[in-house]
């Protein structure tokens, strides 16, 4: 469905030192340095996938999204999305995609939400029936009915983001690009947005490409992640696989009422022990979690046990470190 092959893109950035003298100097003799935003990016994404596209700021995420949505022409490389090269056949390509830039609105500031939607209907030439169906579905699932007649400028950020997402789906696109869709949202709005993205992915088979800095987004949504840094793909794989590879430890937390003897198991690190609560870090290559719990139960009166994976944030930070980003 989406095929990207050896994309390269570099920008010329003007070089200028601080100060008025340097400003005048660069006016007469502009100096440029070349920044390679994308270096040989390749991946394929199949229909119905949700892919988390992650990386630190300036890694090339937005540039890739811009190339895939037909805004930018790459220096070299191929990109084939539903048999179309985005920058060669812009109008036909963008009919099939929806794009949400979290930081920028696509709605008309002074207009009621419904008016914006109607205008989009005409821009995308959506047939009346399809439009009504989509609108009804989106209004119901995103809970928009109360804010339909409110001018966009009066909406809260969470309300606006729900409208943005609805607006990008009115023309039933097959592919949805989400650039930081949960930025600045409160916890409830974040959950609502995530649930919705899951729903349309399941029910309408919409392929979703998601960039975000919020690892909970990735954890709840993406089955696959592509990690990009300094314009190169560092890792491309299933999220579970990533977790398996990097989640080498589990954390066991036990609440106990009585301790028979000191806890000291060779190879297991005690993270904390206070107020009758004990946290242990268990390396999975040497221990089996249930065995450890069994051993513990002989040494203490256990009230409660919980076993946790390493949070995905830590894994990503490790990944960044490993690749020295």
């Amino acid at each position: 469905m989406i095929e990207v092959q050896s994309l390269c893109k570099s920008f010329k950035v003007s070089k200028r030192k601080a100060g008025i003298g340097a400003a005048i100097g660069s006016f007469f003799n502009p100096q440029y340095r070349t920044v390679e935003a994308l270096k040989n990016i390749s991946f394929t994404i199949g229909e119905g996938e949700i892919v988390g596209y992650i990386g630190p700021n300036g890694a090339g995420k937005s540039t890739t999204i811009k190339v895939m949505s037909g805004i930018l022409v790459p220096d070299s490389g191929r990109c084939n999305i539903q048999e179309i090269t985005p920058w060669k056949n812009r109008i036909n390509h963008v009919k099939n995609i929806g794009v949400v830039f979290g930081q920028r609105s696509q709605l008309w500031w002074d207009l009621p939400v419904l008016d914006s939607f109607n205008l989009l209907k005409d821009i995308y030439k959506v047939p009346e029936k399809e439009y009504q169906n989509n609108l009804d579905l989106l209004t119901a699932t995103l809970d928009l009915s109360d804010i339909m007649t409110t001018p966009v400028r009066q909406l809260s950020l969470g309300q606006r983001m729900r409208c943005e997402i609805a607006a990008s789906l009115l023309h039933s696109p097959k592919i949805l690009f989400l650039d930081e869709p949960t930025i600045g949202l409160d916890a409830i709005s974040k959950i609502a947005v995530r649930n919705f993205i899951k729903t349309i992915n399941k029910e309408k088979k919409v392929t979703v490409i998601l960039t975000t800095h919020d690892m909970n987004d990735i954890d709840t949504l993406a089955e696959r992640i592509i990690l990009i840094g300094k314009g190169q793909i560092l890792l491309d794989g299933a999220l579970t696989e990533l977790k398996r590879k990097f989640a080498t430890h589990k954390t066991i937390t036990v609440d106990y009422s009585e301790l028979y003897s000191d806890i000291n198991i060779e190879g297991i690190r005690i993270l904390s022990q206070e107020n009758q609560r004990l946290s242990l870090s268990v390396p999975l290559d040497r221990f089996n979690v249930s065995e450890v719990i069994g051993q513990l139960s002989q040494q203490m009166e256990i009230m409660d046990v919980s076993v946790e994976n390493r949070p995905i944030e830590e894994i990503i930070v490790d990944l960044y470190k490993e690749h020295q980003l």
Binding site: G70, R90, V94, I97, R104, Q106, I123
Partner: peptide, 18 residues
């Protein structure tokens, strides 16, 4: 300056009209 021209480019109509 606002970057709204990017938005225009992802809509299936001519840039002049938009």
């Amino acid at each position: 300056v606002n970057g709204d021209f990017d938005r225009i480019l992802v809509r299936p109509r001519s840039t002049v009209l938009q």
